[in-house]
Simulated assay, not measured.
Amino acid sequence: MRWANTLMARRIRRRGGTMMGFNTLVLLTVGRRSGVERATPVGWFPGPDGTRFIVASANGAADNPAWYYNLAAHPDRVRIEVDGRTVAVTAEQLRGTPREQAWQQIVGAAPRFGQYQEKTDRELPVIRLTERPAGD
């Protein structure tokens, strides 16, 4: 899987844009056990005020993807590569009404996420990424 992620991240860095019908970015997290930086290509959806939503869907697997746990372990060390630049972000898991509003937007734009939700018993986490001010 790391090999495939590396290839997809390289493609996103070179070409940007979309992959498999989604806007894409490279999510940079720090491994919760290894401490090594990990690059994971993920689809994103526009949120209000320039924020971005990502979903820890793992294609509807029983467990969250590894990047989700890395995010939780090192929330102060999350960055994204998008539009040819690297940006420090704050990652916040949405709950309640904000999650439901974002979720409706996401499944409206990409119905396959609704199918992923149907495949699993866990509620798929929706994460809001907000750019941190320079120097933070």
Rank of each mutant, 00 (worst) to 15 (best):
P41N: 11
F53A: 09
V55C: 07
E92N: 09
R2D: 15
W3H: 14
V42L: 13
L71H: 00
E81R: 11
A62L: 03
R95A: 15
R52N: 03
V107R: 07
R13Q: 10
A73I: 01
T97R: 12
W67H: 06
P65S: 02
T24H: 02
G50V: 10
V87D: 01
A39F: 07
T6S: 14
A9M: 12
D83K: 07
T130A: 15
N23W: 10
V126D: 15
N64C: 07
E81T: 00
Y116I: 11
N59H: 04
W44G: 00
R10P: 04
W103F: 06
I12A: 02
A72T: 06
N59W: 07
T18L: 05
E118H: 08
W44C: 07
G84K: 06
A61H: 06
Q93S: 06
G35T: 01
G31R: 05
D76I: 03
F113K: 06
R38I: 02
A88H: 15
I106G: 06
R33C: 00
A109Q: 15
Q104M: 10
F113T: 05
G35M: 07
V42Q: 02
H74G: 05
E131L: 00
A4D: 10
E81P: 01
D121F: 03
Y69P: 06
T40V: 10
I106Y: 03
V87Y: 06
T120P: 00
T40S: 14
R79T: 02
G108W: 04
N70A: 01
M20L: 14
E81A: 12
A4S: 08
T6H: 14
D136A: 13
L27A: 01
A110T: 01
P65C: 08
F113Y: 15
G84A: 12
R79F: 02
D76Y: 05
Q117W: 02
L129T: 12
R132E: 07
R32V: 00
